[in-house]
Structure formats: C-alpha cells, structure tokens
Nucleic acid binder design. Sequence first.
DNA 1: TAGATATTTAGATATTTATCTAAATATCAA
DNA 2: TTGATATTTAGATAAATATCTAAATATCTA
Lengths: 92, 92
Amino acid sequence: MAGINATFQALSDPTRREILRMLREKDLTAGEIADHFHISRPSISHHLSILKNATLVLDERKGQFIYYSLNTSVLEEVMGWFAGFIDKGGDS
Amino acid sequence: MAGINATFQALSDPTRREILRMLREKDLTAGEIADHFHISRPSISHHLSILKNATLVLDERKGQFIYYSLNTSVLEEVMGWFAGFIDKGGDS
DNA sequence: TAGATATTTAGATATTTATCTAAATATCAA
DNA sequence: TTGATATTTAGATAAATATCTAAATATCTA
C-alpha cells in the first residue's frame, strides 16, 4: 500500500536490513530486537514503524509484548521488481 | 566493490531508479539523462556519481560526451541478495 | 589559440533522517 | 488500584542528502 518507494527507502538502512534478517529465524518482540543493537529502544521502535509502513513486517500484540514478523510476500514483490526490471518488463 | 549498502542506498532514490530505467533502453549521455528531469545538470551528475560508485552504471567518455550504461550484473546480484534472503541462505 | 559545448567539482542551503531523552500509553500482576 | 514491564510518541538535535548557482575541466571546431 505504501508503494515501492517506501519499500526501497525502508531497505536502504543497514539496521533495518539487519532487523529483517533477524526475523527470518523467528518472530521477535520489539525488546528482543532492540537487545541486539546498541541503539535506544525508541530508535528501534522508529525503525520498526518504517518497516511496518512499508509492510515489510507485520506486528501483533500479545499481552504486554508486540511481536514482529517478516512479511515475505513483500520481499518477493521487490524481487519481482528486479526480475521485471532486468528483462525490461517491469514498470518499476 | 562499494558493497551492498551503497547499492541499496543508491536504489533508495526515485530519480536514480528512473535513470536506471532509462538506461535499460539504451546508453545515454549525462545531458540526455538530465533533459528528462526538472533538475539541474550538476544534481543529475551527482546522482550519476552515486550510481557509478555503487557500480550500478558504467561510464565511458566519447569525445565531449560521457555515455552511461546499465551494469546489469549488479542488478542481478541484488536480486540474488533477495532470493538468498528469502530462502535463508543469504548473509546479505 | 579562441570560442563553444558537455560534464563535473566546489561551496552553500534547505530538507530529511537517525538518534537521543523524557513522557505517554498499554498490559500484567499483586 | 498501584507498581512494574513493554512499547510507542513527542520533541530536540546532529548528520546525511538533494538541490542550487558559479566555477573548473575536458573536448571539439574554426
């Protein structure tokens, strides 16, 4: 919904790509994600909101915790963008 | 050589993605590229240098002109990054 | 060599972005 | 309800980015 531009923008930051990488393994809470970085929790929260806006991740509250998960279909969509781009079919 | 981060960074700007799209058709001079945008020539030159640094484009001087061309292999590399990412093989 | 054209480099500026601390919101547990 | 934990929102700030104009560099042609 946010468009390919929001997706590329979201992917342009190494911290956010690292978050996506972590979520390949399993769903994680915002706190578990934050613990892997030397960055404040509010900053990680901000990165998560950018990833969420680009629909690269999904969030679901479970009690006190909010679990984040990877939205694989959007990653496949971006890969499709590249595939289409390379063989000239894609309109980006 | 500049790494995956420079590549994602380069791809995060819509003007630069549009430049890449133009170069799918055929090689173009900096001036021809600039003519397609309402942006000054120095700004386009700056975008081109970012794309060049990410090795997404190649440049070759021919007389007064500098021709830019798409470096498809790097685009394929990025696509491979996604493919590897999705099936958990990739270390980004 | 001089003048014209093509492009880049330099330097300035306004906007965007990543980050922080402090405060607010949401939920749980006693 | 009170206190503790999890997370986000608000507001501030420093760094990065996109853009501009002016000047420099490279090449061609007369």
